[in-house]
Deep mutational scan, measured.
Amino acid sequence: NQASVVANQLIPINTALTLVMMRAEVVTPMGIPAVDIPRLVSMQVNRAVPLGTTLMPDMVKGYA
């Protein structure tokens, strides 16, 4: 099973992602693959992402 990107903290809307905000976890359903974490750094979320939420492609501006 491939790990997905999960929020390590509450990420407010329009926040630029940093490594500290994300962790890799095997979850269902799968979200953004953990291998993409370096690519996500400095991209912004388009909604508030609660702690423990799996990041989906439509939550990150410019990802999809």
Rank of each mutant, 00 (worst) to 15 (best):
I11W: 02
P38H: 15
M56A: 08
I11Y: 01
R39H: 15
R23K: 12
V41P: 03
M59L: 07
S42T: 08
R39W: 10
T53Y: 15
P33A: 08
M59D: 11
I37C: 03
N46I: 05
V60I: 10
T53W: 10
E25C: 03
R47S: 11
E25Q: 07
M56D: 05
D58M: 12
V45G: 00
M59I: 07
A34W: 05
M30P: 14
V20R: 07
V5W: 01
V20A: 15
L55D: 00
V20D: 14
P57V: 14
A64N: 12
Q2R: 07
N1I: 14
E25I: 06
A7T: 12
A48W: 14
P50I: 06
Q44I: 15
R39Q: 08
M21Y: 07
V49D: 01
V45E: 00
Y63P: 08
I32L: 11
L55I: 12
V26A: 09
V6I: 08
G31H: 01
R39K: 14
T15M: 10
N1T: 08
T18H: 10
N8W: 05
A48R: 13
I32T: 02
E25T: 09
I32D: 01
N1P: 13
L10S: 13
N14A: 10
V20N: 12
G52L: 04
Y63N: 06
P29M: 06
P57I: 07
D58F: 10
A3Q: 13
I13T: 11
T53I: 09
T53A: 12
V60Q: 00
V5F: 02
V35Q: 14
V45L: 13
A3T: 14
A48N: 05
A24N: 08
P38Y: 10
P33G: 09
V35A: 11
R23F: 04
T18R: 05
V35C: 03
T28H: 08
P50E: 09
T54Q: 04
M59C: 03
M43N: 04
M56N: 06
V26S: 14
P57G: 13
V49N: 01
M30R: 08
K61M: 14
T53G: 11
S42D: 09
P12A: 10
E25H: 10
L17N: 00
G62W: 05
R23V: 11
R47M: 13
M21E: 02
G31V: 02
M30E: 12
M30H: 13
G62F: 09
V5S: 04
D58A: 11
M22G: 00
Q9S: 11
A34V: 05
S4A: 04
L17K: 00
M43A: 15
P29K: 10
V60W: 01
Q2M: 12
R23L: 05
A7E: 01
T18W: 03
M30C: 03
M59E: 03
Y63V: 05
T15K: 05
R47Q: 11
V60L: 11
R47A: 07
G31A: 04
V41Y: 06
V60R: 01
V6H: 02
P57N: 08
G31P: 00
V6G: 01
I11P: 00
I13K: 12
N14R: 09
T54C: 03
V49T: 05
M43W: 11
V27A: 11
A7H: 01
E25K: 06
V60F: 05
L40S: 00
S42M: 11
S42R: 12
A64M: 13
V27R: 08
Y63T: 05
S42P: 02
N1L: 12
G31E: 01
D36T: 08
L55P: 01
Y63D: 04
D36G: 05
P38L: 10
V35G: 15
T53L: 15
S4E: 01
I37S: 05
P50C: 04
N8E: 12
L55S: 00
D58P: 11
S4D: 01
R47K: 15
G52A: 10
V26E: 14
M59W: 06
D58G: 12
V6A: 04
N8Q: 10
L17I: 06
V27S: 07
I32S: 01
L17M: 10
I11N: 00
V27I: 09
V20W: 08
A3N: 14
M30S: 13
Q9A: 07
V60K: 00
M22W: 02
E25Y: 05
V49W: 02
G31N: 01
N14G: 12
I37Y: 03
M22P: 00
Y63A: 05
V5M: 02
V5H: 01
S42G: 14
V41D: 04
V35S: 15
R39E: 10
A3K: 10
S42C: 03
M22D: 01
I37K: 06
P12T: 09
I37V: 11
I32M: 05
M56G: 08
L17H: 00
P12I: 08
T54I: 15
V49A: 05
P57H: 08
M21R: 03
E25A: 09
V41F: 06
T54R: 04
A24E: 06
Q2K: 10
V6K: 05
Q2W: 07
R23E: 08
L40Q: 00
R47N: 07
T54F: 02
M22A: 00
Q2Y: 14
M43V: 04
V27K: 12
T15V: 11
I32C: 03
P12V: 05
I32H: 00
R23Q: 06
V20F: 08
T53S: 06
A48C: 03
S42K: 09
V49P: 02
N46K: 15
V26R: 05
L55K: 00
N8M: 15
Q9G: 09
V20L: 13
V5T: 09
D58C: 04
V45D: 00
M56T: 13
G52N: 07
M30Q: 12
M22K: 00
E25N: 09
Q2P: 10
D36Y: 06
A48Q: 07
Q44H: 11
N14T: 04
P50K: 08
I11V: 11
L40A: 01
V45T: 14
P33F: 04
P12F: 05
T28P: 02
L17E: 00
P29H: 08
N8I: 13
L19R: 08
V6L: 07
M59F: 12
D36M: 11
A34N: 05
D58K: 11
V20P: 06
G52S: 08
V41M: 04
S4P: 00
A16D: 13
I11Q: 00
A3R: 05
L10R: 10
M21I: 04
D36C: 03
Q44E: 09
V5I: 15
T53K: 09
P50Q: 09
A7D: 00
P33W: 04
R47L: 10
G52R: 06
L19A: 11
I13H: 09
V20K: 06
M22I: 08
M56H: 14
A48S: 08
A7P: 01
V5L: 04
D36H: 11
R39P: 03
A64P: 12
A7Y: 01
N14C: 03
V5Y: 01
M56S: 08
R39C: 04
I13E: 09
S4R: 02
R39Y: 11
A34P: 04
L51T: 14
L19E: 08
E25W: 06
E25D: 14
D58W: 07
A64E: 10
N46Y: 12
M59H: 09
T15W: 05
P12H: 07
D36R: 05
V5Q: 00
A3V: 07
D58S: 14
T28R: 06
N1A: 13
R39G: 12
N1Q: 14
M43D: 04
A16G: 06
P33S: 09
L55F: 06
N46Q: 10
N14F: 08
V49R: 04
A16N: 08
V41H: 05
Q9C: 04
T15F: 07
D58E: 11
I32W: 02
M43Q: 09
A7L: 04
V35M: 12
Y63F: 13
L51H: 12
P12K: 13
D58Q: 15
L51K: 12
P57Y: 10
P33H: 15
V20M: 11
V45H: 00
D36F: 08
N1G: 09
M22R: 00
S4N: 01
V41A: 06
I37G: 05
V26G: 08
A7M: 05
V35R: 11
Q2E: 14
T15Y: 06
R39N: 07
T28C: 03
V5A: 11
Q9P: 00
E25G: 07
M59K: 02
P33L: 06
M43I: 04
M56W: 05
D58N: 13
T15P: 01
L17Y: 01
A48F: 13
S4L: 01
T54E: 02
A48I: 05
V45A: 06
P12R: 06
G31L: 01
V5R: 00
A24G: 15
L40I: 12
V60H: 01
P57L: 04
M21T: 04
G62M: 14
G52T: 03
Q9T: 09
A24H: 05
N8Y: 05
G52F: 06
R47H: 10
